[in-house]
Amino acid sequence: MQTFLRIIGLLFGPDGELRGIIATTLTLSVFSTSLSSVIGICLGSFLGCSAFRGKRLIMRVLHTLMSMPSVVAGLIVFLLLSRKGPLGQFGLLFSMPAMVIAQVFLITPVMIGFSATTVAARAQPILETTRGLRLGKGAEIRLILRECRLQLLSVILMGFGRAISEVGAVSLVGGNVKYRTRVMTTTIMLETSMGNFDFSIALGILLLLISLLINSLAQYLQERGEKHLRNN
């Protein structure tokens, strides 16, 4: 109860730090998930629909990247963006764009891999049917994405889950700068190391509540879609 009251107090109190941390976390997660979704679903759909020489090798590399530790992703992006790195001239290190890049780097392989598996499971019968009607490439792609949309929504949610809970990459390239790049996970790490367990627990609960809210919304949309079809 005390923890709950503390959360309420921090959320609606005069100090806007927690609200700022939540806003940064959500902005970061939404941006990186959106970018990863566009790249991941496009490339994943292409991989799922097509057969070509070298596809198995690409899938193997992709599966390896899917299990890439977040600190490794953070380290690679850190080296790319650091002053002496190839992208150092842009001065992005310890900024929100750097954190987005790191998360996109981390999440996109997961999005591609799961999108490819999802699309591959349905593409063959859909393509047989659409090619039999000679509908054209554009219509084929639209229909495949439409038919897989509920599964792809789950893939996006999974990506969002990975983004919002990620700590290694964002702390490396974001630097956990107060009011700028401090997010919920890095704050939990910091507060725990300083012995502020109450605050850490409060943030942990809040993080879970946000995830619960977003997942509930997605589940509601999925169920409404299914129900709409069943009632027709």
Partner: peptide
Amino acid sequence: DFAYIPQRPYCFHLPVWKSITLG
């Protein structure tokens, strides 16, 4: 200039009238 029905055609998540008028 043909139309083809596979042995296991895919059934779309669409009302039947919409599905059969695709294209």
